[in-house]
């Protein structure tokens, strides 16, 4: 029978072998002094590692950690549940009123919804307006870009203009990279 592999020896020492494999290893160890020697060396190594001194923690460590724990605020979840619950009750009330034939309730509900929709409509108008401003900004930037490109094309031939543009992009990237590195270094120092 061939000698044991070193990883088999570790597996044996760490009880990682199946009963059959363990039997086989033990049988071999009985007759092989070389493997016995290898086993005792690795056993000593693991025993030494187990005896390594442990880092002692200061007594106040736990209380220090506990004092620094952040607030786990479940407020948002509660608010969602509260809002959902109120909405449910409100809907239930409306249904009851309508079923009870109180038509006034319908008119009142309609008024409430009208106001809500009115508000939503105004908000959406505001958003659209904002979007239009952004669109206008994008258009001006694009126009400015076109003017620059056109003037470059007028001043230089297309190949040179392209070359200059590529160079411009390269310089911008290099500047951005340098800036990024600079920020990183400042953070570290």
């Amino acid at each position: 029978m061939s000698c044991l592999k070193w990883n088999e020896i570790y597996d044996y020492l760490e009880n990682e072998l199946s009963p059959e494999e363990r039997d086989r290893v033990e049988k071999h160890l009985q007759s092989c002094s070389r493997c016995q020697q290898a086993l005792s060396e690795r056993q000593a190594l693991l025993a030494g590692v187990n005896r390594l001194p442990r880092l002692e923690l200061p007594e106040e460590f736990t209380s220090q950690v506990m004092a620094k724990l952040p607030d786990l605020s479940p407020k948002k979840t509660w608010l969602i549940f509260l809002a959902g619950g109120l909405y449910f009750l409100f809907s239930l009330l409306l249904v009851f009123l309508i079923m009870a034939g109180q038509l006034n309730a319908l008119t009142w509900t309609w008024e409430v919804f009208k106001h809500i929709f009115g508000l939503a409509w105004k908000l959406s108008r505001l958003l659209v307006l904002g979007f239009k401003y952004l669109e206008a900004l994008a258009k001006s930037l694009s126009l400015a870009g076109k003017i620059i490109v056109n003037s470059l094309t007028d001043l230089f031939n297309p190949t040179l203009a392209l070359g200059l543009s590529v160079l411009g992009i390269f310089i911008s990237l290099a500047l951005a990279f340098w800036l990024f590195k600079y920020i990183k270094i400042s953070e570290r120092s």
């Binding site: 070193w6 020697q37 005792s40 060396e41 690795r42 000593a44 190594l45 030494g48």
Partner: peptide, 15 residues
């Protein structure tokens, strides 16, 4: 991975 044929030297650790 380490060579498996490598001959180990004893580590002296009294038990």
């Amino acid at each position: 991975a380490q060579e498996e044929d490598e001959q180990p030297a004893p580590v002296q650790l009294p038990d």
